[in-house]
């Protein structure tokens, strides 16, 4: 197993290198530079700015310099926020987004798997339709829609919860977490139901039932592992998607997280910040997919047989 993990980590290196290289040239090819502003700058000023940020060198030269700095762990200064380094921006935003994402995952997994299980155990009954209808409503209510609706109900009409902030006043973490988690909960519910139905109709379940095991026993001891396979496959990218997807929630609830930086960086053509967040995202994807693949093997012992 450890050999497998090591191999996968090694595979991550070319992935990172390709992403870094592609992104580096992509952002420079995109129209609009980091210093384009409503008021156009005198040519001299632009020249000075470009010199300051090493943008006057040939692109290949810039690329080699950037890789060199990267190896030393230096992501460079942000173009948009001149007195901040990319590392600092990421360091301030990341813990907040990770916390938000964690709560959202808890909401998504608990609600999603539960309702998926409830539905799958008795398909095509009220017990199936009710949670599945809720799940589908959840899919119809993406964060940009659910967020404002929840704020309106719980923040403005009922005055139960704050409409914005993160750790500023009690309870302000609830609405963002629910908002971010619910769309994923809906997906997970649907996928859980589908996966469970596949598994529950297989022979070994029948065998287990024949041996006298109770239904919950069968579900938890035998079926759950296999039934959650689609959910596990989905969760790798989904968790990485939370990082970028949290942008909407962070904007609606005025949360100083990384998602806002990630999207703003692209809009501002903040080259170094785009690079920094992209590198972070790719590391996350590489790691998450390793974890997910290990989880898949753990959940389905058959996968262990062949390397």
């Amino acid at each position: 197993m450890s050999k497998l993990v090591l191999a996968r980590i090694l595979q991550g290196i070319p992935v990172l290198l390709i992403v870094v290289t592609a992104t580096f040239f992509l952002v420079r090819a995109a129209p609009g530079g980091p210093f384009d502003a409503e008021r156009s700058l005198p040519a001299e000023v632009v020249k000075n700015l470009e010199k300051r940020y090493n943008l006057d060198a040939p692109v290949l030269h810039q690329y080699v310099d950037y890789l060199g700095n990267l190896v030393r762990g230096d992501f460079g200064p942000s173009f948009r926020y001149p007195n901040r380094s990319v590392t600092e921006l990421i360091r301030t935003g990341m813990p907040i987004t990770f916390e938000l994402a964690f709560y959202a995952i808890v909401v998504a997994v608990v609600v999603g798997v539960m309702s998926g299980l409830i539905a799958a155990v008795r398909p095509n009954s009220l017990q199936d339709y009710l949670p599945m209808s809720l799940a589908m409503t959840g899919i119809c209510l993406p964060a940009f829609l659910l967020g404002p609706i929840l704020v309106l109900i719980f923040g403005i009409w009922l005055e139960w919860l704050p409409v914005s902030g993160w750790g500023y006043s009690p309870g302000d973490k609830i609405l963002p977490s629910v908002t971010l988690g619910s769309a994923y909960a809906a997906y997970i519910a649907r996928l859980t139901r589908a996966g469970m139905l596949e598994v529950l109709s297989q022979d070994f379940i029948r065998t287990a039932r024949a041996k006298g095991l109770s239904m919950p026993g069968v579900v938890f001891r035998h079926a759950l592992r296999g039934g959650l396979a689609p959910v596990v496959a989905f969760s790798g990218p989904a968790v990485a998607g939370l990082l970028t997807g949290s942008f909407v929630v962070e904007t609606i609830f005025q949360i100083p997280g990384l998602g806002r930086f990630y999207v703003q960086a692209a809009f501002n053509r903040d080259y170094t910040m785009i690079m920094g967040t992209t590198i972070l995202l790719s590391c996350l994807i590489v790691i998450l997919n390793i974890v997910v693949d290990i989880l898949a093997v753990w959940m389905n012992p058959r996968l262990r047989k062949v390397r």
Binding site: V111, V121, R122, P123, Q127, I205, R206, M215
Partner: peptide
């Protein structure tokens, strides 16, 4: 046949599950 048999038994077990939804 097996599938149908399974379904019937699930219905029997469903009572235990019904409590979960309201709890959530």
């Amino acid at each position: 046949l097996s599938r149908r048999g399974c379904t019937i038994r699930i219905i029997g077990a469903a009572n235990n599950w019904r409590y979960l939804a309201p709890n959530c």
